[in-house]
């Protein structure tokens, strides 16, 4: 019964996430940390699993369709991966401080949820103008082209401000490992607004980056024995199955309404996390 409940909750998150334009991990971890008593490390590990497995599933398709810029994703992963591992280890250290540490993690995640909501409300640019004459673009062969079905023509693009973009990604990677969140909510605007990738490419690149970078971070939780196999596997697979259904509903569901509801839920979840964590820190 408990397993079915876990499956149902995870499946529901999987269905809603793509309709709201967010990853499963960013809904899964805060909701479970806010509304259950499951150990935060187990939740973070499971949240990261949810984000990673669904991203790996999606990215194999995105690479095959040549929408995700593979070489750029590898460069980004070189930054995201070590910072994610560091963040995960730091998170485990903080929760090992006891109730105060767990409270601190909840409060910090609550604050991050407000940031997530703010970032989700940012206006994105479909086809930003980038320049392809940078030195890094030549060295790493980062000039790309893809066929855009909306425009009906090939779109040429290159990443801009590579150094600054990767620096921000290091912070995003740390947060992803520390909180056990997927990082799509932050990576998409970084790729789109900072590195000036077309929006469709930015979404694909963010998805692929999460899949590659988190595969090292997950080992931190596995080696620390911070897992429950049922929660890990059932949640991971249920979110993936749910997101397949969610993707099918994309053309018929009232997306604007669902996105608004999810953003409100995330904001309330943030408030609830801050209160719950604050009480824990105060020893109440």
């Amino acid at each position: 019964m408990m397993l079915l409940g876990l499956f149902a909750v995870s499946f529901g998150i999987g269905v809603v996430a793509p309709l709201a334009g967010v990853g499963g991990g960013v809904l899964y971890t805060p909701l479970l940390l806010g509304f259950t008593n499951i150990n935060p490390d187990i939740v973070r590990g499971a949240g990261l699993t949810v984000a990673t497995y669904s991203s790996i599933m999606a990215s194999t398709r995105l690479f095959r369709q040549r929408i995700a810029p593979f070489r750029l994703v590898i460069l980004a992963s070189a930054v995201l991966m070590p910072s994610g591992v560091l963040g995960a280890q730091m998170g485990i250290y903080v929760t090992s401080l006891g109730k105060w540490g767990i409270g601190l993690l909840r409060v910090a995640l609550g604050v991050v949820m407000f940031l997530v909501v703010a970032v989700l409300l940012l206006k994105r640019v479909d086809w930003p103008e980038g320049s392809c004459d940078g030195r890094a673009v030549r060295i790493f062969n980062l000039a790309y082209s893809y066929h855009d079905q909306v425009l009906g023509k090939a779109v040429n693009y290159c990443p801009a401000r590579l150094g600054f973009g990767l620096l921000i990604q290091a912070l995003v990677g740390f947060a992803a490992g520390f909180f056990g969140l997927g990082a799509g909510w932050a990576l998409i605007p970084v790729y789109n607004l900072v590195m000036l990738l077309p929006l469709r490419v930015a979404v694909a690149a963010a998805n692929a980056s999460i899949g590659i970078a988190n595969s090292a971070t997950l080992w931190v939780f596995l080696h620390s024995n911070k897992l429950n196999p049922e929660i890990y596997i059932v949640s991971g697979l249920a979110v993936i199955l749910g997101s397949l259904l969610g993707a099918r509903l994309l053309t018929t569901a009232p997306l604007r309404l669902i996105r608004s509801i999810v953003i409100v839920i995330m904001a309330l979840n943030g408030v609830q996390l801050v209160i719950k964590g604050g009480l824990e820190m105060a020893g109440l």
Binding site: M2, L3, T36, N37, N39, N225, L227, N228, I231
Partner: peptide, 18 residues
């Protein structure tokens, strides 16, 4: 045993699994 472990995990009584 599995459901006992799951019950413990859901109730916050399990922080590691070996």
């Amino acid at each position: 045993n599995v459901f006992l472990q799951l019950n413990d995990a859901v109730n916050g009584k399990m922080d590691t699994w070996r």
